[in-house]
Design a binder for these strands. Structure first.
Length: 821
RNA sequence: GCCCAGGUGGCGAAAUCGGUAGACGCAAGGGACUUAAAAUCCCUCGGCUUAUGCCGUGCCGGUUCGAGUCCGGCCCUGGGCACCA
């Protein structure tokens, strides 16, 4: 019979229609068996699916399909992270409403995703820009405000003086506004903060519970981000007048070496001192330019200026000058540092630049500390000197002794500091969740009462400039105070879009709930496998871990310990690179996957992208390698069709050749299974599938019945093994092999231990670690007989001529190394 | 600047524990089939020298019978750095 051509377009459409009609991937409201919640990070609807999406969703779907075949009850949802800056940019550019642009993009991208044949339960889909979703964020915001977990404080933003608007770090290009080109200024405005630092200890200790399921790299990054450090808070009294400058240090042992203090340019004392010094005022003004991002602050030239005031050293009473420096961060610790040039490299460089004294107080053998000969700071451990009563102490011991001495004078204490800062969630932008607060001239800041939620974001504006249209819309801003009824003004700031992505995974369990979450969230959570880009290793993943605890603490998730962490296993996929750098919409170096899918079909696109690199590694894009995946699917298609329908039963007695082929079949099942289970080395799994296909293709059509039967067994196994990667073709070929069931719900094959057994092993024979020979041995040969056989072998005698055998190392099943000299 | 990764043939990569370096695929070259092309199938494919040899996993050094893998020190590339998502 003629083999029909493999035409993926029609085939995939038909299979997708069947899945749709049979609701193959719809998950129950509540799982009854062993549940598996598979989740890929939901996309921002930028307009076009890009390769990163295809990779992300192919990986997550392969996992979901594999777990489904392993008998788990799988739920895999999909939705849209729909608020954000690009919608405003696009709206400005094209004169559209951001809502319209966003919804059009969602419609288009939904079609693209559906074309990929991902096993989603589409009935759970939502977009975060709809009031049904963001209203619960507003509800939670008010709850957290009442609990004191939301508060207001001044914070620095990038300000474009021409466009009169706040800029995102991304919109600051070389220190200037991206549209206006004007030099960016720092501006302090009142913003809302979520008290994530109240959860710092728990977010840190929770990482220990994830050591099995999360990549070590991500855990390390989060630990460093939270940055718990033990040290001391030390107060330096002002020499003139009342008051102290508080500093935090992890090195109280070096206190006797402090020669000056440095405060942030925004520090109140710096601002106050500038009133009497034009030069200082000019310096502070210079510091007010450039991006506020940490990267730009840390890489700029280190500069400082004296404030013209002194503090007293808390122990010696000696007066030390106070400087301001552009590298001191207002947001970390107290916005001030004590400077010990001898034992801190940045202080050392700063002191040399400005001629400030260097006083060494820690010494160790072989290192010069102090004097002209010192060329860099000594930051290691050692013994104290130049330190009065502390001389001779080991520096670790000195930390607690000096802290105690300072504390005894009421000028400090031992403390724990975190690098983690509270999360500022106010955005002076339009396209986001309105912050549900009202500013009343009499009552101050008042939350919107629950009965008035949601505060709906108007969507009818046409944007003309970057300024938020909410500011100029009296229908939105004019409101009566919920407390006193007086005329009040509605808050026009919106929330950081990271808020939406911090709890969507929970909402997917109960997308239609009449409250933020209901019991179904507890039933489906935690997510069993989360898949997304490494670029989210810190921010998104930390915020979601924080939110999950907030949800627990307002009673929406059980406080049973099993629901503290939102994501049990995490796979951080590598980026798709083009020409060596990240493929991203902002860089404009994207490759449109649509052409790939149109030409070769979804199965080829998926198979190629999973085969090209292991999921965690970066994938450098290349157009040329796709053909190979397509050729393989064609080969497999022909092989199954040429074989025909239902395979015959396996005879009891198999020829040696059939036994070998059957071993290859079961080795393949074993290899693919081991590379799937928890490891997800898809590229190796697919290579094993290709390898067995090559072997099976060598079986001739007129081979003996036993060989043909093993071939049939192999084809059935291969089709099952291929199903997570190329599900459409697997579905059709499964039917071709005489199976009536849907392969998506078929059982994953299990390797037969008997078929894997092998009577002989090939050992590699080395002399001094260099490969010389290969020899076959019975699988159960003992060491003595192996050694004897190897040394007696003529080739070995030749190699060993004139040498003395000193030792023979035998690694069972692998090699023999003869040490000779 | 700080934090985290990665570096293996012409290319993407493979190598549970320290034990045959380069599976599988791409590209390339040769051949079969064909009037021809496409498709398909077969063969070769790290380097040097053409050997039963030597060298080879970014660079330098170390541990070991044995190092892509472990240790120390560098170099290069990528990602994150709190308002891109």
């Amino acid at each position: 019979m003629e083999t029909p051509a493999y035409s993926p377009q029609e085939l995939e459409a038909a299979v997708q229609q069947r899945w749709h009609d049979q609701q193959t991937f719809k998950a129950a409201a509540t799982p009854s068996g062993e549940k598996f919640y598979a989740l890929a990070m939901f996309p921002y609807p930028s307009g076009q699916l890009h390769m990163g999406h295809v990779r992300n969703y192919s990986i997550a779907d392969a996992i979901a399909r594999y777990q489904r075949m392993r008998g788990k009850e799988v739920m895999q949802p999909m939705g849209w992270d729909a608020f954000g800056l690009p919608a405003e940019n696009a709206a400005l550019k094209h004169g559209l409403a951001p809502a319209q642009w966003t919804m059009d993009n969602i419609a288009h991208m939904r079609g693209q995703l559906q074309r990929l044949g991902l096993s989603y339960d589409w009935s759970r889909e939502f977009a975060t820009c709809t009031p049904d979703y963001y209203r619960w964020e507003q509800w939670l915001f008010v709850k957290l405000w009442e609990k004191g977990l939301v508060y207001q404080k001044l914070s620095t933003v990038n300000w474009d003086p021409v466009d009169q608007t706040v800029l995102a770090n991304e919109q600051v290009v070389d220190g200037c506004g991206w549209r206006s080109g004007a030099p960016v200024e720092h501006k302090e405005i009142v913003q809302y903060f979520l008290r994530i630092t109240a959860y710092a200890e728990e977010l840190l200790s929770g990482l220990d519970t994830l050591s099995e399921g999360w990549p070590e790299q991500v855990l390390t990054m989060q630990r460093n981000w939270i940055g718990r450090s033990e040290g001391a808070e030390i107060h330096f009294p002002l020499a003139a007048g009342d008051g102290v400058i508080k500093v935090f240090t992890t090195r109280p042992d070096t206190l006797m070496g402090a020669t000056y203090l440095a405060v942030a340019p925004e520090h109140p004392l710096a601002v106050q001192a500038a009133e009497n010094s034009a030069e200082l005022a000019a310096f502070l003004e210079r510091c007010r330019h450039g991006s506020v991002s940490e990267a730009s602050i840390e890489t700029q030239e280190k500069e400082g200026h004296p404030l013209g005031l002194n503090v007293r050293h808390p122990l010696t009473g000696v007066e030390l000058p106070v400087w301001t420096a552009n590298f001191v961060l207002m947001g970390y610790g107290e916005g001030a540092v004590m400077s010990v040039p001898a034992h801190d490299q940045r202080d050392f460089e700063f002191a040399h630049k400005y001629g400030l004294p260097v006083r060494a107080v820690i010494q160790t053998e072989g290192i010069v500390t102090g004097g002209e000969a010192m060329t860099e700071a000594y930051t290691g451990s050692g013994t104290l000197f130049n330190s009065g009563t502390f001389d001779g102490l080991a520096n670790e011991e000195a930390k607690s002794r000096i802290t105690a001495a300072v504390a005894a004078k009421g000028l400090g204490r031992k403390t724990v500091n975190f690098r983690l800062r509270d999360w500022g969630i106010s955005r002076q932008r339009y396209w986001g969740t309105p912050i549900p607060m009202i500013h009343c001239p009499h009552c101050g800041v008042v939350p919107v009462p629950e009965r008035d939620l949601p505060v709906i974001l108007p969507t009818h504006y046409q944007l003309k400039d970057p300024r938020s249209p909410l500011l100029d819309d009296p229908e939105f801003t004019q409101v009566a105070c919920p407390q006193c009824g007086a005329a009040a003004r509605r808050e026009t700031d919106t929330m950081d879009t990271f808020v939406e992505s911090s709890w969507y995974y929970a909402r997917f369990a109960c997308p239609d709930a009449g409250q933020m979450l209901d019991q179904r969230a507890a039933d489906w959570l935690p997510v069993d496998q989360y898949v997304g880009g490494v670029e989210h290793a810190v921010l998104h993943l930390l915020y979601a871990r924080f939110f999950n605890r907030l949800l627990r603490d307002v009673g929406l998730l059980p406080a049973d310990g099993a629901h503290d962490e939102p994501f049990r296993h995490l796979l951080t996929q590598g980026m798709v690179l083009k020409d060596g750098s990240k493929m991203s919409k902002s860089k404009g170096n994207t490759v449109d996957p649509q052409g790939l899918i149109d030409r070769y079909g979804a199965d080829t696109a998926r198979l190629f992208i999973l085969f090209a690199a292991p999921p965690e590694q970066h994938l450098e894009w290349s157009d040329s390698a796709v053909e190979g995946a397509y050729r393989f699917l064609n080969r497999f298609w022909r092989l199954v069709h040429e074989y025909g329908a239902t395979p015959p039963a396996l005879p009891a007695d198999l020829s040696a050749e059939a036994v070998d082929l059957r071993r290859a079949v079961h080795q393949c099942i074993d290899r693919v299974s081991r590379n799937m289970d928890g490891r997800y080395h898809f590229n190796v799994a697919i290579a094993a599938i290709m390898e067995l296909t090559n072997s099976l293709m060598k079986v001739p059509a007129d081979a003996p019945a036993d060989l043909r039967a093993v071939l049939g067994e192999g084809l059935r196994a291969l089709t099952l093994l291929l199903a997570p990667f190329a599900p459409h073709i697997a579905e059709v070929l499964w039917g071709k092999l005489g199976q009536n069931s849907v392969i998506s719900h078929a059982s994953w094959p299990v390797a037969d231990a008997g078929a894997l057994r092998c009577d002989t092993v090939t050992l590699v024979i080395q002399i001094n670690g260099k490969l010389r020979e290969r020899m076959d041995f019975p699988a159960d040969a003992d060491h003595a007989s192996v050694e004897q056989t190897v040394l007696a072998h003529p080739a070995m005698q030749h190699h060993l001529e004139g040498k003395t055998v000193r030792k023979v190392i035998i690694v069972p099943g692998r090699l023999v190394n003869v040490v000779a000299g």
